[in-house]
């Protein structure tokens, strides 16, 4: 009955996977080590920094604070799933345009959280963006350009919807 390994099914960036995973494997370990989706970063490993943020059934979560078995039956979306070279997501484009990254370590998590934030609210102002990004830390930029990028990304995402 109890087992150290578990069979799970999940959809990652639109692709279905049936996998056997150790019960103690974190979702971020599954994504990076098993599926080689290394765009999702590990900054702290203890739920503080937000670098590992992905979407679980459409909501931003920290994938270092969730076991892969808990994602059984769920949809997962990572930075690789939203856009790539040649077809950037409007939020990625805005980060590039606004110089919203330096080392880039926090960027995938920032962008995944920013997309979730914009999709869940309308007409965010600067203060709302600052509060909305409370779970994501950046050690380089001082945040100003990140905030600018999220506001610009919001506009671009809303224009895309029209």
């Amino acid at each position: 009955m109890a087992a150290l390994n578990k069979h799970i099914h999940l959809r990652v960036n639109g692709v279905s996977h049936a996998l056997e995973v150790p019960a103690n494997m974190l979702l971020v370990e599954l994504l990076r080590q098993r599926l080689r989706l290394t765009g999702t970063h590990v900054g702290c490993d203890t739920c503080q920094c937000g670098a590992c943020t992905v979407h679980l059934d459409g909501r931003a979560v920290k994938s270092c604070a969730l076991f892969a078995v808990q994602a059984d039956g769920c949809r997962v979306c990572t930075i690789e799933g939203i856009g790539g070279p040649g077809g950037l997501h409007p939020m990625q484009e805005a980060f590039r345009d606004c110089h919203a990254l330096q080392c880039g370590f926090c960027t995938p998590g920032m962008i995944m959280r920013a997309i979730d934030l914009v999709e869940r609210s309308d007409g965010l102002d600067e203060q709302a963006v600052r509060e909305g990004l409370e779970g994501n830390l950046c050690r380089c930029t001082g945040y100003h350009n990140i905030i600018k990028a999220v506001l610009q990304g919001q506009e671009a995402m809303e224009a895309d919807d029209d």
């Binding site: 937000g50 979560v61 959280r113 409370e134 779970g135």
Partner: peptide, 9 residues
């Protein structure tokens, strides 16, 4: 409580 990611779980 905490941040959005923490509140989602």
């Amino acid at each position: 409580i905490g941040d959005a990611q923490v509140r989602n779980l």
